[in-house]
Every structure is written in C-alpha cells, then in structure tokens.
Design a protein around this nucleic acid. Sequence first.
DNA 1: CAAAATTCTTTAGTCAATAAAAAATTTGAG
DNA 2: CTCAAATTTTTTATTGACTAAAGAATTTTG
Lengths: 211, 211
Amino acid sequence: MTEQQPTSLRERQKEDRKARIIAAAKSLFLEAGLEKITMEAIAEIAGVSSVTVHNYYGTKSGVLLALVAESDRELLATLERGLRARGETLTDRVLGFFEIVCRHTQTHLDKAIWRQVIAASVSGTEPRFGKLYHELDNRLASVLIREVERMVGAGILPETVDPAHLGWALFNLQNARFIEFIAADGSSCEAGLQHLRNDLNALMPGGFPGR
Amino acid sequence: MTEQQPTSLRERQKEDRKARIIAAAKSLFLEAGLEKITMEAIAEIAGVSSVTVHNYYGTKSGVLLALVAESDRELLATLERGLRARGETLTDRVLGFFEIVCRHTQTHLDKAIWRQVIAASVSGTEPRFGKLYHELDNRLASVLIREVERMVGAGILPETVDPAHLGWALFNLQNARFIEFIAADGSSCEAGLQHLRNDLNALMPGGFPGR
DNA sequence: CAAAATTCTTTAGTCAATAAAAAATTTGAG
DNA sequence: CTCAAATTTTTTATTGACTAAAGAATTTTG
C-alpha cells in the first residue's frame, strides 16, 4: 500500500504501533476463534495499552475492518483478472464477480469477522468506520461499473445504458446475496450463486437489461 | 394482536412481564434518545431485574426488534392498501413499496433503532434474533411476490416470469436502498427513491423485465 | 538544552452480557 | 389445605467493550 515519506519520528512510531496492532489481531485470529480476540489481548501482544487500540481503531470491529481492508487490494486484482475469463453476458460477469468475492472471503477471513464488520458498518456508531467501509464498497462497485462501461464501448450494451446506475444496481443485488452468504456459517458459495442467478434471470431474462 | 388461551398462571405472568418490558422500552425511547435506553433502566421501569430482560429478549437489540415487530402488522396493512394506488408498471409498484416502508419507518421509529436491529440481524450472535428478523423480511418480500403474481395473472407480465424469483430480486434491490436510507440520519426518502428509480430503470428499461 | 506540544498510559467508571448460587412462588400430590 | 417439587426470578459476581480525565513520557522546537 505505497508507503512513503517517513515524516516525523512520531508518525513513524504511530505507523509502527498500528502495524503491530493489526499483526497482533491477525495472529490471534489465526490461532483461535473470534471469541479469543479481546482488545486487551491485542494490546498486550502489540505492546501498547488497550486505550491506544481504541484510540487508533475506534472499536474492535474497526480493528477487524483493518484486517478486511488489508486483503482488499488483492481482491481487486483478482477481480480484474478473473472477470475476463467469464462468459460474455452481463449475467455471467456479475456471477463471476460474486463467486470471486465469496471464494476470496472464504480463503482469507472468517465469516464471523465479516459479520462483525458489516454489522458495524450499518450500526454506524463509529463515524470513521462507515466512511472506510463505504470506500471498500465503492471500489468494488467500480469494478462492475467499469465492466458495464467496457461492454457499452464494445457495443454489447446499448448507448442508452448508464454504466454507473446499472453497475450499482448489479452490485447491490450481488451484495444482498453476499450478506446472505455471510450471515449463516452453513450457506455455501454455490447456493448464493444459484440465488443470484435467479435474481438476474428474473430481472434480465436475456442476460442483458431491456432485451 | 390476537391474544388467546391464557394458559397457566406462570405463562400469564410471563406475558405480562414481557409486555411491561417493551412498554418500558417504548416509553424510554419516546422521552429520550437511544443512548438513554439502558437495560437497567428498562428493567427498573418494567419492575423486573435486568437479567430477566436478557433472559427474555437476549440482547438490547432484541428488545428493539420487539418494538419494530410491533408496527409490522400495521406496515403490512398499509402496504397492501397503498400499493394499489400506484402506476401500472412494475417499477412504479416497487417504488411505491419503498416509499411506504420509508415513510412508515420515519413515522414510527427512529433510524438509530433500525440500525441496531439490522446490525444485530447481520452479526447473528443471537440465534432467535436472526429467525425473527428473517420472518419480517419474508413477510415484506411476500408482498412484492404476490404483486408479481397478480401482474402475471392479469397478463401484464409474461407467464415465463417466476414470481418468487422476481419478487425477491426486487425486494433485495429495494432493501439495499432502504439500508442506505437508514444508515445516515441525513439521507431522505426522496433521495432513496431516486436511487432506486435509477436501479430499476437500469435493469428494466421499460418498467418491466425483458422488454 | 529547556520549555512546549503531542501522545501514550494509568486510573476509574459505565454498561452489556453471562454464569452460578440463592430466593421466591407456582404447581401438584396427598 | 399443606407441603414438597419444579420452575422462574433475583442476587451476586465477572468479563470485556468503551469512554473520560489526569498524569507520565517523549518528541519537537526555539
């Protein structure tokens, strides 16, 4: 994530502490369940006081969001790459998007963590939090928007299509199924794909809007 | 809401306590903000111990869900009634659905309460909770599904449409914008409507799928 | 180098949530 | 009607998230 300009000593120390904190959180998460992640435990491993963790990340969910955000760049790269290897209908692209996000989630983090993060983003107690989370959403939605733009440019979709509107609509649709996927430990990526396929077929019978 | 069979004394007492608890929560919510609603305060007004409130409703959000569920029946009635007074396109019906839900929300409860409830439904710590909330969603989605069924029956939509699939897709779309509406105190019903209109136009340019 | 500014830690407290023991009360048997 | 058994609530105690304020360091700056 493009570090640069190691300005003052103070700022370097702060960056270092922050890094230690999320490293501590990650290590705790790897060796035990979410229950084991207490702010005290994180603080102790990171070598700071628990108040400092709060000051940096606001809430426990804030720390978890940092974990989520870490794998964000990687997810975006995988998306850009993986989306091309799909069918040529818009439906295929959205399904591909969903599948990549789900698999990435399964590989990199626990559903329980995502639940906490999403819940916190909705409850909106922490102002910083909502902003950060919304940025992630924006970046993800942008992938779909660019995909629509590309298809309009290639003449696959008519000029009348507004890429931003269609992209966001598709993202929201997909996101609803992602949340469903996250919500229950039992629900599989395949089930989510099937549901999303049904959604898209119902709204866009031919694989494209307004056909 | 259709009381019946006052079985044993114990069960009657329990129902009475439950009623007192949600009444207490409601009174507290009316005279002060969400911050003022502590489990202790609720318990004190209801004349029970705070542990009892936890035993009955699991979490504080559980109590709030009971508040939300209370106005559920009324919302459903308003929906059935109000939806008929709309335009004849599917888009118009979905927009009407969204508008009624938003206005009902504004009238009856605070956004902050909805945020807590939705967040708790996602985080899924309390198992009973997720079940209850999902039932609310099911009832709401059913309204849209029945609307689609009606339109198929009336020949407005082709027989090839699966009402359940289309109904859920539209509900999810609408719900994403509802959550957006809830998420920020500043966001208006009108802005949500505009966003949803954009979503629907992008996916169903003619006001119906596959046209 | 010393005063000033910044930042962390300590300390103390509130509140949600949970567990276990203790107390009260309904219920059911005689 | 009474007393033991079953159920349920309250009491008590603890953990952990989160916040506020005062105090302790340490970097920064003149």
